[in-house]
């Protein structure tokens, strides 16, 4: 599988990464190399093998429904680039 600069643009958009034209070319080359390397998986016969999402054959543990987290808004928002009236600010959202 080979990737061109236009596809890099699409992927970068999905991943919300600003990538300029020059970078796109380099990324296209690198990503194509990596995909070519990864493509050897296509030759593996994995018919009937159950996909393995996790190394542990364990199941999800459940948490009791008890409030354990106090309000720490001030501490968290001290880390934020832009806040006002208790809200995180972003450029206007259009719905």
């Amino acid at each position: 599988m080979s990737i061109d600069a236009a596809q890099v643009g699409q992927i970068a958009h999905l991943a919300r990464l600003a990538v300029d034209e020059q970078e796109s070319e380099a990324h296209a080359r690198n990503l194509s190399d990596i995909l070519a390397f990864v493509d050897r998986l296509a030759e593996v016969d994995s018919k009937d093998v159950e996909p393995m999402a996790h190394p542990l054959e364990m199941t999800q543990r459940l948490r009791p429904d008890q409030v354990s987290e106090p309000n720490e808004r001030e501490r968290f928002q001290a880390l934020a680039p832009s806040v006002s009236d208790g809200c995180y600010l972003v450029p206007r959202v259009i719905e």
Binding site: Q66, V67, E69, N71, E72, R73, F76, C87, Y88
Partner: peptide
């Protein structure tokens, strides 16, 4: 009483972000 994946409260109408934990 709490969120699906955290122990923060779910009560309606609180001040912004006071029921948002890490």
């Amino acid at each position: 009483k709490t969120k699906i994946f955290s122990g923060a409260a779910t009560a309606y109408g609180a001040e912004p972000n006071v029921q948002a934990c890490a």
